[in-house]
Amino acid sequence: MEKVEVKDLLEAGVHFGHLTRKWDPNMAPYIYMERNGIHIINLYKTSAKINEACAALSKIAASGKKILFVATKKQAKDIVAEKAGGVNQPYITERWPGGMLTNFVTIRKAVKKMASIDRMKQDGTFNSLSKKERLQVDRQRAKLEKNLGSISDMTRLPGALFVVDIKREHIAIKEAQKLNIPIFAMVDTNSDPRQVDYVIPSNDDASKSIHKILSIVASSIADGLNERKAERADKEGKSAKVETKTKKVEAVAATKEAVTTQEEE
């Protein structure tokens, strides 16, 4: 995992909160001071909270569960797509599809529809359609890709949700709460941290701040995935050794049997 330096967080502007009049009093424990009508976040607390969140995310990744990233605000979209995609995790950067978690079966059907259109194009069925039908199918495929393309590999509910701006993504938060899916989030001074299991007090508006936090988070997920890979390789190595040993024992037994048979003859 990337080492969290308070100096780096400061340079990325992670400490800038919202206007004091827009604050949520529940964020008081994470606020260091007020300057020019703006709340300043205590970066030592941010640093401790990042470490806590990253340790948990690394464990989830190592267990083989997916972490769904949610960020539909303009300045976070591309960063989330890059960082989550880089560690092979699903993400939503367009509009949140209502029922994405609580009605997961329907969402999976839509993803399967996308796959069936792809199959039609491969096996030639698509070419047998009329020009108008082909156009409709293409439009449908493009729409599905835009909204759900990044979650096409998510075959079951995620092990956790990572959200940038919990106020904006309140529907996603509600759905995760209903299903007891742990929520990790960048929480600014205008939001209620009680809605989140793992709070990272930080500026969720500036792209530099979002980039910094997500780089650290993605790095810890990569660590978890590498741990999982190493464990699997270790298991495979052990089972291969057992298999080799068994074969040797069988070969020795077969040789003995052959020798015994010859002697008897």
Results as ranks from 00 to 15, higher is better:
residue 1 M to G: 13
residue 2 E to W: 08
residue 5 E to N: 08
residue 8 D to F: 13
residue 8 D to P: 15
residue 14 V to L: 01
residue 15 H to A: 05
residue 20 T to K: 14
residue 21 R to A: 04
residue 24 D to G: 00
residue 27 M to P: 02
residue 29 P to V: 01
residue 32 Y to Q: 12
residue 38 I to H: 07
residue 38 I to F: 07
residue 38 I to C: 07
residue 39 H to F: 14
residue 48 A to P: 06
residue 48 A to R: 15
residue 50 I to L: 14
residue 50 I to H: 09
residue 51 N to G: 15
residue 55 A to V: 15
residue 55 A to T: 11
residue 56 A to H: 12
residue 57 L to F: 04
residue 60 I to A: 06
residue 67 I to L: 01
residue 68 L to M: 02
residue 69 F to S: 10
residue 74 K to Y: 13
residue 75 Q to Y: 03
residue 75 Q to I: 04
residue 81 A to R: 06
residue 83 K to Y: 00
residue 86 G to I: 06
residue 90 P to L: 07
residue 90 P to T: 05
residue 93 T to C: 15
residue 95 R to Q: 00
residue 100 M to N: 00
residue 103 N to D: 01
residue 112 K to V: 08
residue 113 K to C: 15
residue 115 A to G: 12
residue 116 S to L: 08
residue 124 G to K: 04
residue 124 G to V: 02
residue 125 T to E: 11
residue 129 L to K: 08
residue 131 K to P: 11
residue 131 K to Q: 11
residue 137 V to D: 00
residue 138 D to C: 06
residue 145 E to C: 02
residue 146 K to I: 00
residue 146 K to N: 09
residue 147 N to E: 08
residue 149 G to P: 06
residue 150 S to V: 06
residue 156 R to Q: 15
residue 157 L to V: 04
residue 158 P to H: 09
residue 161 L to K: 03
residue 164 V to M: 04
residue 165 D to G: 04
residue 168 R to G: 08
residue 180 N to K: 08
residue 184 F to L: 09
residue 187 V to K: 02
residue 197 D to L: 02
residue 207 S to W: 09
residue 210 I to H: 00
residue 210 I to E: 06
residue 212 K to Y: 01
residue 212 K to F: 10
residue 217 V to S: 03
residue 222 A to N: 01
residue 225 L to T: 13
residue 228 R to H: 01
residue 237 G to F: 02
residue 237 G to Q: 06
residue 243 E to Y: 11
residue 244 T to D: 08
residue 248 K to Y: 12
residue 248 K to V: 13
residue 251 A to L: 00
residue 252 V to I: 15
residue 256 K to W: 15
residue 260 T to N: 12
